[in-house]
């Protein structure tokens, strides 16, 4: 049997539970209807401020996501390296040293230009 099959069982059980529970809750707590006020977005009881809700967002979030992808790929490369590290010994240290040194340059640049400041 494929060792990943039980994960599929787990996924099916979890999804069935989530969908089932939500449907049940929807059945028990049927919407009783209401006025405009009741269904308005909640902003501390104040009338929702006029304007676009899904505003444009600071470019900062995009930068964080982009840097995250790059570092995530770096970390992914570290896993096979760590697994065979005892076979590679000093050689492995040098190989990964070069790889990380180049990325550290980028990290230092990112830090220097202030991309890590949250202002």
């Amino acid at each position: 049997m494929n060792p990943y099959l039980p994960i599929l069982f787990m996924l099916i059980i979890a999804t069935a539970f989530a969908v089932g529970a939500l449907s049940l809750a929807m059945f028990i707590g049927r919407p009783k209807g209401g006025n405009e006020r009741k269904l308005a977005p909640y902003e501390c009881g104040i009338e929702p401020v006029v304007g676009e809700v899904r505003e444009r967002f600071p470019v900062k979030f995009y930068l964080v996501a982009m840097l995250f992808i790059l570092f995530d790929i770096e970390v992914i490369f570290l896993y096979p390296w760590a697994v065979v590290f005892r076979q590679l010994q000093v050689f492995g240290l040098i190989e990964m040293g070069i790889f990380l040194a180049i990325l550290l340059l980028g990290y230092m640049y990112v830090w220097r230009v202030g991309a890590l400041e949250w202002q």
């Binding site: 770096e74 980028g106 640049y109």
Partner: peptide, 23 residues
């Protein structure tokens, strides 16, 4: 090994590009 090391250059370029564009 060589493609692996070059990957770091690609990642470096992406990092600098993202910062230059965003800031």
């Amino acid at each position: 090994l060589l493609p692996f090391e070059i990957t770091s250059l690609v990642l470096l370029a992406a990092m600098i590009g993202a910062v230059v564009l965003a800031l």
